[in-house]
Design a protein around this nucleic acid. Structure first.
Length: 460
DNA sequence: ATTAGGG
DNA sequence: CCCTAAT
């Protein structure tokens, strides 16, 4: 950490701390904004930056402002590969800036100094951006009820495809291999067009053994991967068998854990009281003394630690480092048409795996079904009072992004809604009888229908 | 206590 | 990164 002293206007002296933002911090911030929305800084701080005691919510806000500026200032020159040599500050990888811009556009945050576009006749990217913006506005209108006779599903699909294409187009310039599975992405969009879900599929033929951690391009792929919903590791069945383990291990080394749950360790810093170490199950890898030593390393002397599983030392460290990302992953074994049936059978029986052939279009529908199933998405339809449920535009929830409770559902509709809710009426799998009265804590299931009953507003 | 915005 | 005004 650097501390410089600067003179203040009144002749005094003030200490100014500076701690450079690491890439993983930036990625966490971007993820936080995508999850909770720009402006909810203290929430992001609490939920995503719990382990970084420096970085106040204001810091996050400032950093986001800088990122926003950077992303809009820099993107127009996206033809060349990072041609900005004069960037004295740490260069933020392009994919991250893209994501920043995308989020900004989705939340209709446009930097004030970019009202008249300079990139008038240039590449398709501005057109795409404009289209995305337009469609976004349309969606907003539809939600507000002013719906005309057009087909919303088609528009939604266009919207997703537009975003996918924009993303992929930008990435294409950086990745060695063109995204060959674009077609598959389109299939996903068509089949599940009722849901605003973003599936970004990177064709990761570019990730080779030994590349992760040493190649900046590979790191960018990983940076983007971390903010997506699921990872599909596409493996060539006809090549060596070890690729899956090697890639998984290499990804783990850079903080991306596939097909694993986060360690079940409750950890809370305290002001006082020393370290209390407890467990709900017998622990064999860690004892109180070891725990104390580790926390001492992090200069933590007061905390409550509760092991909910027989976790290892590494797990405890991960909890403290807090820079690991646990992601769902499906291992997709491609080219099963060129190997023997016994081998196919063996691969298909492995956990989190599916076998396909792009060439012969084998098993692709099962892959889609599996993606859907793994993501654990919960579509909830809204039902206005006294009207039919709206089955065209579900609110999509999942345990990974915010949770599936009624409260989460309300927050998806509008941030301020939750405090006005008296109770909700639920139809569907999660309801015992129809309709069932439930509160904010109720956990919803896929295809439930919910009607919100608001508290009576007392007027003075 | 938190946030937006100017510095 | 810091500060202040506004909520």
């Amino acid at each position: 950490m650097i501390i410089v002293t600067v003179p203040t206007s009144k002749g005094g002296i003030r200490r100014k701390h500076h701690r450079a933002w690491t890439l993983s911090e930036v990625m966490k911030l971007v993820e936080g904004v995508s999850r909770y929305g720009a402006g909810r800084w203290s929430e992001i701080k609490r939920l995503a930056f719990a382990s970084y005691s420096y970085r106040t919510s204001v810091d996050l806000k400032d950093k986001w402002r800088n990122l926003l500026k950077a992303s809009f200032a820099h993107i127009p020159s996206d033809k060349g590969v990072n041609s900005r040599k004069n960037a004295a500050t740490m260069p933020i990888p392009e994919p991250i800036l893209l994501r920043v811009r995308e989020l900004a556009e989705r939340q209709s945050q446009v930097p004030p100094n970019l009202t008249s576009g300079k990139e008038a006749g240039s590449s398709g990217s501005s057109a795409v951006a404009a289209k995305i913006k337009r469609d976004g506005d349309n969606r907003e209108d539809q939600r507000n009820g002013s719906r005309d006779g057009s087909k919303p599903e088609k528009k939604a699909t266009d919207y997703h495809l537009g975003q996918l294409k924009a993303k992929i187009a930008k990435l294409r310039t950086q990745l060695l291999e063109p995204p060959k599975v674009l077609q598959k992405a389109r299939d996903v969009g068509d089949r599940y067009n009722a849901s605003p879900v973003y599936v970004l599929i990177l064709y990761c033929a570019v990730l080779f053994q030994g590349m992760i951690g040493s190649s900046s391009k590979a790191m960018m792929v990983i940076a983007v991967s971390k903010s997506s919903d699921i990872v599909l590791m596409v493996l060539d069945t006809s090549k060596s068998e070890g690729h899956q383990q090697i890639l998984t291990r290499e990804l783990e080394a850079v903080g991306l854990c596939l097909t694993k749950r986060p360690p079940q360790i409750y950890f809370k810093k305290k002001k006082t009281g020393g370290i209390s170490f407890n467990s709900t199950v017998p622990v064999t890898h860690v004892d109180e003394k070891l725990c104390y030593q580790i926390l001492h390393e992090y200069k933590i002397h007061n905390a409550e630690v509760l092991f909910r599983e027989d976790a290892t030392v590494d797990d405890l460290i991960d909890v403290n480092e807090g820079n690991r990302k646990y992601m769902k992953c499906i291992y997709v074994y491609n080219k099963i048409d060129v190997i023997g049936i016994d081998d196919v059978d063996k691969l298909a029986r492995q956990p989190n795996s599916i076998v396909i052939s792009c060439n012969l279009k084998l098993n692709l529908d099962r892959l889609l079904a599996k993606i859907w199933e793994e993501m654990g998405l919960v579509r909830v339809y809204t039902k206005p009072q006294g009207k039919q449920p709206d089955f065209t535009d579900p609110v999509v929830l999942s345990a990974d992004r915010g949770g599936c409770s009624v409260e989460d559902f309300c927050n998806h509709i509008h941030r301020s809604l939750v405090k006005d809710v008296k109770y909700v009426l639920v139809w569907g799998l999660s309801a015992r009888h129809y309709p069932q009265h439930r509160g904010l804590g109720h956990v919803l299931q896929d295809e439930d229908v919910v009607q919100i009953v608001k508290k009576k507003v007392m007027n003075a």
